[in-house]
């Protein structure tokens, strides 16, 4: 089963993303910030990471940079979940090694359509 790590400091968004993914048959693990996300990533294997950018403790950009340093996450798709649709923010994500992004607000349909582009 496809395993997805969902990192967001907002309970409602995290729950919504996770619920949507589970409804679509994915297995999800949740983390509330970059630090917890990194720890969970180190402890398991994931087929996809979806992370918010603005978070306390460790933000999504830093998480992405750290994840790319791990051998098991070298090719893993990482999607940044963010309201920042500015080119600058996208560049920061790409530079850190993110695969792509999903601009908030989004609905479950858009989320699933986007995920189809990174997992089989």
């Amino acid at each position: 089963m496809t395993k997805i790590l969902v990192v967001d400091d907002s309970n409602s968004i995290r729950d919504m993303v996770s619920f949507t993914l589970k409804s679509a048959g994915f297995e999800t693990t949740e983390a509330k910030d970059g630090v917890e996300g990194l720890n969970k990533a180190k402890a398991g294997n994931y087929d996809l990471v979806i992370s918010d950018i603005n978070m306390p403790n460790m933000d999504g950009i830093a998480l992405c940079t750290e994840l790319r340093k791990l051998p098991s996450f070298k090719f893993t798709p990482i999607l940044m979940l963010t309201t920042e649709s500015s080119p600058e923010m996208k560049m920061r994500g790409k530079t850190a090694g993110a695969t792509g992004w999903l601009v908030k607000p989004f609905n479950p349909e858009k989320l699933l359509a986007t995920i189809k582009r990174v997992v089989r």
Partner: peptide
Amino acid sequence: NSIFRAAHSIKGGAGTF
């Protein structure tokens, strides 16, 4: 930063919902 983050989260969630 923390004020910004709070506003940012509210904006993101409000849009989604």
